[in-house]
Nucleic acid binder design. Sequence first.
DNA 1: TTGATGCGCAACCAAAGGTTGCATATGGCA
DNA 2: TGCCATATGCAACCTTTGGTTGCGCATCAA
Lengths: 116, 116
Amino acid sequence: MSTAVDDDLWSAIGDPIRRTMIDLLLAGGPGTATSLSEQLPVTRQAVSKHLAVLDRVGLVHGAPAGRERHFQVDEAQLARAVAQLAAVGATWDARLRRIKRIAEAIERNRNNNQGD
Amino acid sequence: MSTAVDDDLWSAIGDPIRRTMIDLLLAGGPGTATSLSEQLPVTRQAVSKHLAVLDRVGLVHGAPAGRERHFQVDEAQLARAVAQLAAVGATWDARLRRIKRIAEAIERNRNNNQGD
DNA sequence: TTGATGCGCAACCAAAGGTTGCATATGGCA
DNA sequence: TGCCATATGCAACCTTTGGTTGCGCATCAA
C-alpha cells in the first residue's frame, strides 16, 4: 500500500543537512547560503545546492535582496511535508500494532492448548 | 536544535524503494530479495543492496533458510524510526504554530495602530 | 545426477553531494 | 568617484550511492 507520498518532497527532507537547514531557517528566520553555511559542516556551495533542491520542491523560497539572496521556509509546503511524515509513521505504527496483536493472540492460543 | 536524530536510521528510511520494501515486508510477512524484487521496479541485486543497508541499521534481519534468505522487519527498531519521524514532525509543527501565532499577533497589533 | 532456482560477488554506469577555483555584481567607504 | 570587500553563481572534478549486467556457486527437486 506504500502510503502515497510525494517522493520529491520526502527525499528533500531525507537529507540530514537539508533537515538542519530547515531547522535553522525556522529558528532564525530568513537566511542566505553564506549565513547558513557558517552554521553547517559544509561549504557555501554545498549549501547553495541544497537550497536549490529545497527551492525546487517548494520548501523554501529565495528572494534577491541587493547582493544577497534571502531564503525562507514556505510554511504551507513544510506543513505538507510534516503531514507526510505523520502519515507514513501512522501507517507503520498501525501495522506494528496489528502484528503485535496477532502475535499476542497466537501466544494466548498456544498457552491455552498447552493448558489442555 | 536540529532534533537529535539517528542519521543512519533516518537516511535508511529516506529512500523510497527502501520505504516500500518495509511496507511490503510489513504487509506480506518475511520475504527474500527475489520475492521483493518481483514487486518493485528494480532488479534483485538492487533490492539486495537495499536489504544490506536496512540490515546494517537493524531495521530488518535476514536469516538463511536453505538456498533462500528470509528477511523480516525488526519491529522494535522500526518503532524507533517511527518515533523519530514523529519527533521531527512535532518539532517542525511546533515551530510552524509559533511562527503563525507571532504573525497573527503582529497583524493584530498593526490593525490596532491603524485604528488609532 | 542433472536442471532449475536463489544468492553473492565483481565490473561498470549515472546521479547526487561535496570541494576548490574563478568570474561577476553589489555595497560601503575614503 | 574609485577601490576594496563580500555574496553569488558557474564550472570542473572527486567520491559515494543506487542501479545494471554477467557470472559462478550452492541447493532443491525430479
